[in-house]
Nucleic acid binder design. Sequence first.
DNA 1: GACACCGTACCTACTAGTCGGTATGTTGGC
DNA 2: GCCAACATACCGACTAGTAGGTACGGTGTC
Lengths: 207, 207
Amino acid sequence: MTDAGHESRRKLLDAALNVVRARGYTATRVEDICSAARLTKGSFFHHFKTKEELALAAAERWGAVTGALFAAAPYRQLSDPLERLLAYVDLRKALIRGELAEFTCFAGTTTQEVHQTHPAIRDACGATIRQHSGTLEADIAAAMRQYGVGASWTVESLALHTQAVIQGAFVLAKATQDPAIAIASLDHLRRYLELLFRSPQAQEERT
Amino acid sequence: MTDAGHESRRKLLDAALNVVRARGYTATRVEDICSAARLTKGSFFHHFKTKEELALAAAERWGAVTGALFAAAPYRQLSDPLERLLAYVDLRKALIRGELAEFTCFAGTTTQEVHQTHPAIRDACGATIRQHSGTLEADIAAAMRQYGVGASWTVESLALHTQAVIQGAFVLAKATQDPAIAIASLDHLRRYLELLFRSPQAQEERT
DNA sequence: GACACCGTACCTACTAGTCGGTATGTTGGC
DNA sequence: GCCAACATACCGACTAGTAGGTACGGTGTC
């Protein structure tokens, strides 16, 4: 799937990613996506049977694009797992710039909107979030071993917590129209991770 | 405003709060709200000129209802400001039960969906979030003084961070259809607050 | 000429908002 | 006490416009 010959299909998906993040899923018309992709409805319904099918494909593409971005990031080469984790947060901070629709998360935005009405889209978006969250778990587990931090919380829960902070930071940024608030929240997340792994008190937690 | 004689108006607002949280703002029809309130469109457009005007009034009501809830909570009587802050998180955890649409946040959900398309609704929701966040600032400031914690972060940013975690926890809960994940994230938030105010390392931060 | 691809025109279901109408008070003059 | 006049609250059928989806025709490529 996603062969080389599907240039228009890719254009439609990328257009959908941008327009839906700006306008929301329900409020974006398929014509909005078509005009953003400089195509027409004929092309749209040639590639996708329904609007919902496009959303599912867009969620899949979102996971692929973001997955490739973080997998190829330079910080992945750091030897210390905690350093990798902190560098991940730094990268997320660095990505917060420009327009809201450009740096916010398609999966989080969409799943929040349609979680009740479109279960298939919700599951597709949820899967990308969980998958992305899962990429952090190896580093968290390694950092736990290396820094001798106890197990009053699980690896999975901390990975998901980082995603919650990021998603929540986006919500706040939209509510206040101020990306700086999102960055400040990621600073708090970073401070939490440092305290969690480096403070003596946390290391005594070996229950 | 919100006199005793506006029973139907209040019913419509409460119905909107529930239906919009479940279905999203754009996807909910005014008829959905009417039938949930056991009223008709005639009544609806008697009380509100447009659907957007209802959303603005609903945001205001959301702020009033939640504001009253937390202002009247027993934990407000605790003498230690840090204890009040931690008890706030505990209360937020305790409120996470039942259906998603019952415990998630109208303001956060709606602002995320319409932030670009309906600036007035976004601002109304954003105002309730900021206002609620502001109610935490006095306790945070008092805890900073009492526990001698340094100022590498601002009172406002920590208050907003708690809201970001809460909003993000809701997003994750919707994405995964698992409220337990939201609770686990609030556990991490609580742990952060404890580390921030109680760990020796954090207290050395007096810059 | 078969097929993938894409454009234009059109169909149809749906929905925000309108409009005439009814019912229920409420005020004030006598 | 009564009634005219008016305001408020509500109902439900209707309208105008919108948006998802379809039909079909054209074009390039193999």
